[in-house]
């Protein structure tokens, strides 16, 4: 008996698709089992999050007073004081908020910090009410993962 080559080709294709499907199923089950095993062995507890840098674009909005009298150094000092007041020396060391750029004419800047402390940075910025005798509100605008994106956002501001 001679089989039609078209039928043979279709049967081969169906068999290969089925084996691929079964392979995916087996892989998914195996990965699930290994995840459960790793969780049971507690390996996740030892997995440490690598601290990555985040860049926050912020704007200093003056409520009363002149924006031009706010210098970069005074913004840095306000951030440092606010962080130390809230989280102490140890917290300051962990958060490490660093003012990497500040445009004095526009009152906008970029603050770098460790990604694990994002919420802390929001809180410390809300504490800054006065810089160099000028009443201000610090408005966080955007958080990015790269300095380049932060600079772009600052240009668009």
């Amino acid at each position: 008996m001679q089989l039609d080559p078209l039928v043979l080709a279709a049967a081969a294709l169906a068999a290969s698709l089925l084996s691929a499907y079964l392979g995916v199923l087996a892989w998914r089950r195996a990965s699930r089992i290994s995840a459960v095993a790793r969780a049971l062995l507690g390996s996740r507890a030892f997995k440490l999050a690598r601290p990555r840098k985040r860049y926050m674009v912020f704007e200093v909005v003056t409520v009363s007073g002149d924006l031009s009298s706010i210098r970069r150094a005074s913004v840095e000092e306000a951030v440092r004081k606010s962080c130390q007041l809230l989280f102490g020396a140890l917290g300051y060391g962990a958060v490490r908020p660093t003012l990497i750029y500040y445009d004095e004419s526009r009152g906008a800047g970029i603050l770098a910090f460790r990604h694990l402390w994002r919420n802390h940075v929001f809180l410390l910025l809300s504490l800054i009410r006065d810089i160099n005798g000028v009443k201000v509100v610090v408005v966080p605008v955007l958080t990015t993962g790269t300095r380049r994106k932060a600079m772009k956002a600052l240009e668009r501001l």
Partner: peptide, 18 residues
């Protein structure tokens, strides 16, 4: 009590989570 004492909503969120 005035504009200078307003806080960003995310700061409130942050305090609650902390």
């Amino acid at each position: 009590t005035d504009a200078s004492t307003l806080v960003h909503p995310t700061a409130m969120f942050s305090l609650a989570t902390l």
